[in-house]
Simulated assay, not measured.
Amino acid sequence: MNPNGLVPCLEDDGLVLWESNTIVRYLARRYGQPPFTPEGIEVWAEAEKWMDWAAISFAEPFKQLFLNRVRRPPEERDDAAMEQGRQVCEKLMRIADDALRHRPFLAGDTLTVADLPLGCFAYAWLSMPIERPDLPHLAAWYQRLTERPAFQTAVMTPLT
């Protein structure tokens, strides 16, 4: 159904969607309820900012780190790309940590669609055997995510 031949892909009542964040936005708007689906254009914009930031800024350096650390055997790893990805991800996680200094979730006081993309990355980031800085606000946010049964079931799966 996805012309790119990739997952994720969603078919809902005849509508076919691909791209993770598009699917999350659609499901939230179609089936979600506040506070998970923000009320007001400003809160939606704040949530979508974080979703797009994770997809555009975070995904590529994370891919380099993840592929080389988790997916490739040691003899096939590109250590320079892995370290470059780790350093960029660290810089970006510091941005998220700073944003979480004054609020419990990325878009405000409650969990919203903003937290899903980075939450998925954070699970892998915090599960990989890599050097990481102490980011207390990010850690507290992540702890709140891990307490949610849906996060445990859908996200906290073995890294492969």
Rank of each mutant, 00 (worst) to 15 (best):
P3M: 03
G5N: 05
V16Q: 12
V16F: 11
L17K: 12
S20I: 07
I23D: 00
Y26C: 08
Y26V: 12
A28K: 10
A28F: 12
A28H: 12
R29Y: 14
Y31D: 07
G32P: 07
G32I: 15
Q33M: 15
P34F: 15
F36P: 06
F36D: 15
I41D: 12
E42A: 14
E42L: 15
V43A: 11
W44K: 09
W44E: 14
W44D: 08
W53E: 07
A55R: 07
S57N: 06
L67N: 07
R69D: 01
E76R: 14
D78Q: 09
D79L: 14
M82V: 03
E83I: 02
Q84M: 08
Q84H: 14
G85H: 06
Q87I: 05
V88K: 12
E90Y: 00
R94D: 00
R94Q: 08
D97C: 10
R101E: 00
H102S: 01
R103W: 13
L106T: 00
T110A: 04
T112C: 01
T112S: 04
P117G: 01
C120F: 08
F121C: 09
F121V: 11
Y123W: 14
W125Q: 04
W125T: 04
L126D: 08
S127R: 08
I130N: 02
P133H: 02
D134F: 09
D134M: 09
D134L: 10
L135Q: 03
A140K: 11
E147F: 07
P149D: 11
A150M: 10
T153F: 09
A154M: 13
T157I: 13
T157V: 15
P158R: 03
L159S: 06
T160S: 13
T160N: 15
